[in-house]
Computed example of a mutant assay.
Amino acid sequence: MTDITSEGASGRRAVPQNSPGSPPLADDGRRPAGIDLIACVELFYFAYRDFTGDPDAFLAQYGFGRAHHRVLHFVHRNPGLKVAELLDILKITKQSLARVLKQLVDEGFIIQRAGNEDRRERRLYLSAKGVRLTDKLTQIQVKRIEGALAKLGPGADAVAGKFLFAMIAEKDRPQVESLIKGTRPQTPGNVSDSNE
């Protein structure tokens, strides 16, 4: 068994030869040139740090964090989203969402309305103030992605999209695809939020 903490001649930690998700080994037992999965993991961490860092600094001016950002983003992209649907998208507890949502509602960034068919449903919308904040945050992140893709040349957006989609758990892909296309599927987890 390979010691994953051992260092090779390059001074970098060696990747176990039989690690799950690793590409097939070449005939000589080495990885194909250019593939270092540990480096990919590290790059993902650094990319996420910088992708969220700029909005984090902006959100701090309001006393908000990443949870507030995610709520604002998905409510903006899906006006009239039910609280239960938002819980399903974010995969967080009701208690976690309740704290963040209360702050966003109390400070006038999100408006809650009863559902038309079921008055017990809570439907979520952004206020004009919420739209302005969310648009600014989106603008910051789009600029970073746009700059990175521009450096990679034509077709990079399609490859990046395929890579990110492949990183999502297979069971969640239909929901994510529907959200990106602007349609919310009715699943057992989001048909009704009348218990809230």
Rank of each mutant, 00 (worst) to 15 (best):
V131P: 06
F44S: 15
T138W: 03
L179E: 02
M167R: 06
K91E: 10
L179T: 09
T138S: 10
V105S: 03
N190D: 10
S22A: 15
D172H: 04
P174V: 02
Q175N: 09
T5I: 11
A166C: 03
G34Q: 07
G11W: 10
P185E: 08
L149N: 02
V131K: 14
S96I: 00
L104A: 04
A150V: 00
L59Y: 00
I111D: 14
G108Q: 05
K91A: 11
P188M: 07
M167W: 05
G153E: 07
Q141D: 03
G153F: 06
R12Q: 14
D193P: 05
L81D: 02
R113N: 14
A39C: 09
G63W: 12
G63M: 06
R31L: 15
V75R: 05
L164F: 10
S22V: 09
L133T: 08
A39V: 06
A14G: 12
K91I: 11
V83G: 01
N18D: 15
K91M: 12
I168T: 15
E177M: 10
R144V: 04
K143M: 07
D88I: 01
A158P: 01
Q17E: 11
Q141S: 08
V142E: 04
V131D: 07
L164K: 05
S194F: 09
A148H: 03
P79G: 03
A160N: 07
A39D: 15
P55F: 05
P154S: 07
K136T: 13
R144E: 06
F58K: 14
F165I: 00
